[in-house]
Design a binder for these strands. Structure first.
Lengths: 232, 232
DNA sequence: CTACCTAATGACTTCTAGTCAGACAATGGA
DNA sequence: TCCATTGTCTGACTAGAAGTCATTAGGTAG
């Protein structure tokens, strides 16, 4: 009869509206300072209605974070599917990663929250498993790419693709978080640019896992880009 | 007259008692779930008394975390001062680091909290600057060691000691946090031991920053240790 | 027109961080 | 010995926000 489906759709849309309102409020105030009343006001709904759709503030926060993760994952997927060169794909994923957080800084803290299990006091099992499967997709994509790299002899065969995916992603995230919090402090006190430190760290890791031939390709790529930047 | 000094001492001791009680409660329940009433009970004081000594729950939490950081820093300092070989010092610091968090897992989340600025809603300026100077000491120690490494041609001279200190510490911390949260998940789903991943990541980074001669020393050290473990 | 179902809400409860006026205890002087 | 002072401590309180629920409103089917 179609009415049920329409209601389903409307319910989903309502949920999305709430998440979008929550995103705005959380972006501005962060998890702790933002209140459900403020989010309700931003969504032009009553607080009780929010609780019809999300069982807790933390669930709502995670829904916002998952939206961000999906967006970033989409960019990665796009690169993985369309870039034939694995070396270039890794490089472009790093660029996309930097760009994503440069333009949407607030996701840095949100993604880090996923790791802070002691703050997950009220997260529902349903949301937990949603996060889980979303995360799994993300890991699968990166691990798959590295695995292909090993098969194609781009990446050394004594490297475990899964381990290396964890190392790359975890290191990038944590340096990004530090940059988000302490960028000015390091610049001021010790004249360190944490953005550059991230680049250094990434480059070092990639250098360490590539086969000699691939390393040459990577260095040529960096060199070309360097030249291009200095030309413009 | 000595009485003032005695009062000072008693006040300090009282503060320490509160921190110790808080540590027990925070270790058991984490920042969010633990309540000031519980901590007051554990300290055998009223809640109002806690607030005479610490202006907020977060301040108290950070005081506990700083106690942990001081303890770890002490172990590092000990190694730095007494171990003449920089390669061995780095290795022993890694061991001390792993051991510290193996025996006191709860500090993993606590240290990570330092980076989650969005949760610092009520931290006093005084505590902020205490953390700051405590952190600074810690960084100075690691950076100093790496700088000596460069001077002694143990570490490659194109490495910036400050940058590398940040990379080493940040990467270790973030993998430790992931291991704390997701160890079982990775073991179960993909048969990955995150402890080993941490070792791999550390070894790779050290390998990448040492000069060729020092790298031989490092590999010999790992080899000897490996043999010793297999013998016992 | 009525019965029903779902979405929505205002008013409510509960919990906990943080406050404050006043009790209590130790010191020091008369 | 007694009083004044100072600093420590606490029970009872307030404020604010998460989460709940009985009730209302609006659309749908018979």
């Amino acid at each position: 009869m179609g009415i049920i489906e329409r209601k389903e759709r409307e319910k989903e849309r309502r949920k999305d509206e709430i998440v979008e309102a929550a995103r705005r409020v959380f972006f501005e105030k962060g998890l702790v300072t933002a209140t459900m009343d403020e989010i309700a006001e931003a969504a032009e709904l009553s607080k009780a209605t929010l609780y019809l759709h999300f069982p807790s503030k933390e669930d709502l926060y995670l829904a916002v974070a998952m939206g961000g993760l999906r967006a970033l994952h989409g960019k990665f997927q796009e690169i993985i599917e369309h870039e034939p060169s694995i070396v270039r794909a890794l490089h472009r994923m790093k660029e996309a990663y930097m760009e994503f957080f440069r333009t949407q800084r607030q996701y840095v803290q949100m993604f880090s929250f996923l790791q802070m299990s002691q703050f997950h006091k009220q997260v529902s099992d349903h949301m937990r498993s949603t996060c889980d499967s979303e995360n799994d997709k993300h890991w699968e994509a990166i691990i798959g790419l590295l695995r292909r790299g090993v098969e194609q002899k781009i990446i050394r065969d004594d490297i475990d693709p899964t381990e290396m995916a964890i190392v790359l992603w975890t290191n990038a995230s944590s340096l990004m978080l530090r940059a988000d919090n302490e960028h000015d402090m390091w610049k001021r006190r010790r004249n360190i640019d944490l953005r550059k430190t991230m680049e250094t760290s990434f480059r070092m890791t990639i250098d360490a896992i590539l086969t000699p031939a691939a390393r040459l390709e990577y260095q040529a790529l960096l060199h070309a880009e360097h030249a291009a930047v200095h030309q413009s």
